[in-house]
């Protein structure tokens, strides 16, 4: 390992995480397993809780919006599963260095990105547990399409990249400015209602495109729509790529100029 080679370079931190994948992969799995260790159903609780919440929610909202529950349930379930993953990753990353992994960061020579990926991994393993329901809904309520599945997996890649970059940015900022964490929690709560998850952006009529001012709209759409057999248009992929580019640029600049100071803010 070259001296301090990763501290001020996010590219080098990604390289470190690639070559030392066991460091974050196994530890994130272990985090998730230990969380449910004393329960009978284990990770099944997660899936069950989601199923109950979404069933009630889609029943009520389908009545309010006068929509077919068979159409509405997969729409809400897929949207919420992706949004929960993003929300959990971003909000927990805000206290990752100042609380959750403080002792590790202060006592072991590890790039902070390892801890970010450990956190993302934990929430992603959580998301994977929704896949049986997501596939069940796709195969039995919709028409099977290998084309849709391909774009769905592509959407997951985008989702994980967004979660990683946003988590890393908010992790640094909220370690430096402790007021940012409650702010992020509030924003994410508001985003649950502002993002077309429980409602459809087409309900906005001619103003539907205004929904894209909220980045979560196109981030969720890129994962949810393919599995509902509506592969999004190129504009959604374009918006996602542009957003990823700027997120990466911001992260690159923060790490370049402040990466070596991060440990003093913990």
């Amino acid at each position: 390992m070259k001296d301090y080679y990763y501290l001020n370079s996010i590219n080098n931190q990604f390289k470190f995480c690639y070559y030392n994948w066991e460091t974050w992969y196994y530890t994130s799995w272990s985090d998730l397993v230990s969380k449910y260790k004393r329960t009978k159903l284990g990770l099944g609780w997660n899936v069950l809780a989601m199923l109950i919440t979404i069933s009630i929610m889609s029943f009520v909202w389908s009545k309010i919006f006068k929509m077919d529950m068979v159409v509405f349930f997969p729409y809400i379930f897929n949207g919420f599963a992706a949004f929960f993953f993003l929300n959990a990753s971003i909000t927990s990353s805000c206290v990752l260095l100042s609380q959750i992994n403080k002792d590790i960061y202060l006592n072991l020579p590890l790039p902070f990105l390892v801890l970010i990926l450990r956190n993302i991994g934990q929430h992603f393993f959580n998301y994977i547990h929704y896949l049986p329901i997501i596939f069940f809904l796709h195969f039995f309520l919709l028409e099977f399409s290998i084309f849709s599945l391909f774009f769905y997996f592509l959407g997951i890649v985008f989702l994980v990249l967004h979660a990683t970059l946003l988590s890393a940015i908010f992790c640094i900022i909220s370690t430096r400015y402790r007021d940012v964490y409650p702010l992020v929690v509030s924003i994410m709560s508001a985003a649950t209602l502002l993002t077309p998850i429980m409602w459809n952006k087409d309900m906005l009529g001619s103003n539907a495109n205004f929904a894209y001012l909220n980045p979560f709209t196109f981030i969720i759409e890129i994962v949810r729509e393919p599995i509902l057999n509506n592969v999004p248009g190129p504009s959604v992929y374009f918006l996602n790529i542009i957003f990823l580019f700027f997120s990466y640029l911001i992260l690159h600049l923060i790490v370049k100029y402040k990466g070596d100071r991060l440990i003093y803010w913990v």
């Binding site: 530890t27 397993v33 230990s34 260790k37 002792d103 072991l108 590890l110």
Partner: peptide
């Protein structure tokens, strides 16, 4: 550093070792 209380001693050996690279 890094010990996980809910995991077994054996699991912790793996966990800490992974964290140490």
């Amino acid at each position: 550093t890094g010990l996980q209380m809910e995991s077994s001693g054996l699991e912790n050996i793996y966990l800490i070792s992974y964290l140490r690279g």
